[in-house]
Design a protein around this nucleic acid. Structure first.
Length: 271
DNA sequence: AAGTCTCCCTGAGTGC
DNA sequence: TGCACTCAGGGAGACT
């Protein structure tokens, strides 16, 4: 589910609800997430005060007093929310952190592709991300972007989905970015002109910025950190619009499969 | 060795 | 209503 805009929304929602609060304890379901839970973390997390909530790519980082971090990935169906007193625990809730104000921080994930991991300090999680995560879209150097595209023969869709190339773009925003740049997602990355490469980077940034402003996209079960959904799905130009008229030229939106993912594009506007 | 494929897991939707 | 089947926003690891 969640790509950069959704994870950013969760971080922004959680920040005022968590910073200054203390994680009183940890309760956990028996089911394993993507990364195994180490029981020793429960002692390390108990009675830690939250100092910061950050995002890197599609990862959430909860900074704690003493310098430790809780690192969270929402996978496809993860929800990381703060709920008030007495709210019933929903199915697939795998972690519950009671807070010092009678609220609870909860991690819920039906498919369990997500993960919640403890890191002793910032260098520890930064090291974990080396080789897994590239620059944030707004930190990408345009020259390096252009060179990176030139260096791969993969298609644009696969390249945008590569988290080491640029952090945070997933299936929806890859399609929307290609449409905004008027580029065919099937094209080989190394075939882009300098002008086209620039257009693609600007499109990625613009699409993600607008999506963040709309609190991300809720097309299935995504919710932000406060439980409130997003609204960007109403602004999709191509994603999920197979056969519907292109918003620019009214040609029916086409559908194919790239990098193992459903891909949507306008066969007339995107060259 | 870059690029592609398969799998992890559950739920929702579709067609019969 | 039930069953079989397909697909889903991600990422790691195994292939070619």
């Amino acid at each position: 589910m969640p790509e950069l805009p959704e994870v950013e929304t969760v971080a922004r929602d959680l920040r005022p609800l968590l910073v200054g609060r203390t994680l009183v304890a940890v309760r956990r379901s028996k089911k394993a997430l993507r990364q195994a839970w180490d029981k020793s973390w429960e002692v390390l997390l108990a009675n830690r005060r939250v100092e910061a909530v950050e995002r890197r790519g599609k990862w959430l980082l909860v900074g704690l007093d003493g310098g430790a971090y809780l690192m969270v990935h929402l996978g496809m169906t993860g929800q990381f929310t703060v709920v008030g007193p007495g709210v019933a625990v929903e199915t697939h809730t795998h972690l519950v952190f009671p807070l010092d104000n009678a609220h609870e921080l909860r991690f819920r994930d039906a498919r369990r592709f997500g993960s919640v991991t403890y890191f002793a300090d910032r260098p520890a999680w930064e090291t974990f991300l080396v080789g897994r995560l590239g620059p944030e879209p707004w930190d990408v150097d345009p020259k390096a972007w252009q060179a990176g595209l030139k260096a791969t023969r993969r298609n644009l869709k696969a390249t945008l989905l590569d988290q080491t190339f640029v952090a945070g773009v997933g299936n929806i925003y890859a399609d929307e970015s290609c449409f905004a740049a008027r580029l065919d997602p099937r094209r080989s990355a190394d075939g882009l002109s300098a002008a086209e490469a620039g257009r693609l980077l600007r499109a990625v940034r613009q699409v993600l910025t607008k999506a963040i402003e709309a609190r991300g996209s809720t097309i299935r079960n995504y919710v932000g950190g406060s439980g409130l959904g997003g609204g960007y799905q109403a602004e999709f130009a191509v994603y999920g619009r197979t056969g519907e008229p292109c918003l620019r030229c009214e040609t029916p939106i086409a559908h194919t499969r790239l990098a193992g993912r459903a891909t949507h594009y306008c066969p007339r506007c995107q060259k």
